[in-house]
């Protein structure tokens, strides 16, 4: 029932970000499904997987974590490589998607 959930969410995202550049939930979903979900899952990581869950996490925290991984302030062999190629708007899209997703 994703479609019915997303449309109101897009409206929320638009109104929250106001006149600033709006995060694109669909772009976020696309990237999450293609990249992040490989380890972190959509709603939750795989049973027995050593990766933290992302769905429903605090947006500010997610954004900060991704930026720190990108700048290598926070060190992780895998996450530094993955986050290293994200642009600011990619991070915004991903954060918007995962933070609004029910775990």
């Amino acid at each position: 029932m994703k479609a019915t959930i997303f449309f109101p969410l897009v409206l929320v995202a638009l109104s929250v970000s106001g006149s600033l550049q709006a995060a694109n939930l669909f772009a976020g979903q696309d990237r999450a499904a293609n990249v992040c979900a490989q380890c972190h899952g959509i709603h939750k990581p795989a049973a027995g997987a050593p990766f933290p869950s992302l769905a429903g996490r605090d947006a500010a925290y997610l954004k900060e974590a991704l930026k720190q991984y990108r700048s290598k302030k926070r060190v992780s062999e895998i996450m530094n490589a993955i986050a290293g190629s994200l642009r600011d708007n990619d991070i915004d899209d991903l954060v918007a998607y995962y933070s609004k997703l029910k775990p």
Binding site: N34, N80, A81, S85, L86
Partner: peptide, 18 residues
């Protein structure tokens, strides 16, 4: 392998690990 963000991520990883 997906020809998106991933290839660049992996090549970065490769360079680093190489």
């Amino acid at each position: 392998i997906n020809q998106t963000i991933l290839s660049s991520a992996i090549s970065l990883l490769l360079t680093a690990s190489n």
